[in-house]
Nucleic acid binder design. Structure first.
Lengths: 205, 205
DNA sequence: TATCTTAACTTGACGGTGTCAACTTTGGTT
DNA sequence: AACCAAAGTTGACACCGTCAAGTTAAGATA
């Protein structure tokens, strides 16, 4: 039954997963405006309302897509963090760089993940929150580690410090991917500036 | 003819301006999803397609709304900058604070102004760019002034420095208004942290 | 004053969208 | 063998943005 080539034709087999994948493809190809349930269904080869057996409504589908985005981002953060060969300062640079690179590589997905559509009011699903909050908390944990290692003042509130740091990468990423920076700025150069502006006081690292 | 109370009924008199105002009201009341040309027209008391004589399409209307937003933000920046009674450090704090406060007071407008909808590809109108770029450039100019006054290294590229600063406020603002910060953090405290993290090395100001 | 031009506004129509209700098919359980 | 619940279907509805063709009225021209 899990044989993909077998034409069971009526029951799809793994429609929920397929919908998420194809919808994300459509998002990356043509932006959020071109993601419609009807086009998605037709592209997957299924009727208009079939998706409703797997997602309560369109918002739930979008939340599902964002959910996977947060898992990716969390994974990227983890990989950078667990690299033993880097100095603290390099760790910090890598966090900033990888984060902005992720946004740059997946602009529409990133916009979806952090946009108002999904988060305002109470429209975010529980699953989305369960996926996103650990990702946020990991960034707080990294900040605490950086504080311990001397990159930032240990006495400062780690949550606040990480909010400022995260704000910075988030802001740069968004301005970057939305094409608001007028020149075709190099990611690496901006990251260098961000790092040096935060760490100018602790050159010993 | 400009008499508002006079029921000329067929010709509105100042429809373009009224549309922008009412659309922005609708945006602030119920978010971008509730802003439709048809509801807007009906609320203004005009037929469905009347707006098309003043805006090429919906995107042009949205650009018009964002345009006004950038004029407001530019004005706020100017006001803070021209306040003679503040020290440099206070100027810097005020810039950050006022910016985030603006976003906090007008969350949906802010999302519109900086969102992908309007900026991606070539969908931004010339008028929007004419309104937004001076606002951006003013921030670069402020940064140069801060560099001269010793807040930041004069040798650094002003554009890059301002991109990082602007990224920070933009990112904090967005995370704030989208309700992604889990606790209802005080704006002032976050601004304090942002200022001190950038200026820790130059305490003399 | 009479006529003409044209911008502002209207109605009708089309294809696309999210979503609901009612129906059919199917795989697995009793 | 009978049944049930999950998965998928078709039809319908109320919206939406936008185009084409027609109407109204304000202001310039003569």
């Amino acid at each position: 039954m899990n044989n993909i080539n077998e034409k069971s034709s009526y029951h799809h087999g793994d429609l929920r997963e397929t919908l998420l994948i194809v919808a994300t493809e459509m998002l990356q190809e043509n932006g959020i405006n071109e993601v419609s349930l009807r086009k998605l269904a037709s592209r997957v080869g299924v009727s208009r309302t079939a998706p409703y057996h797997h997602f309560k409504d369109k918002n739930a589908l979008l939340c599902g897509m964002a959910e996977k985005g947060f898992e990716q981002l969390h994974q990227i953060n983890k990989c950078g963090y667990e690299d033993e060969e880097l100095s603290i300062r390099e760790h910090f640079y890598r966090f900033i760089h990888d984060y902005i690179q992720f946004a740059h590589n997946n602009p529409d997905l990133y916009e979806l993940m952090f946009g108002r559509t999904i988060w305002k009011d109470k429209s975010s699903t529980q699953e989305l929150r369960d996926s996103a909050y650990p990702c946020f908390q990991f960034q707080v944990a990294m900040t605490q580690e950086w504080q311990k290692k001397g990159l930032f003042n240990v006495d400062d509130n780690a949550l606040r410090v990480s909010q400022v740091l995260w704000g910075t990468v988030h802001g740069i990423a968004k301005l970057f991917i939305d094409g608001i920076y007028t020149d075709n700025s190099k990611i690496e150069e901006i990251c260098d500036y961000a790092v040096s502006m935060f760490l100018a006081k602790s050159k010993e690292n």
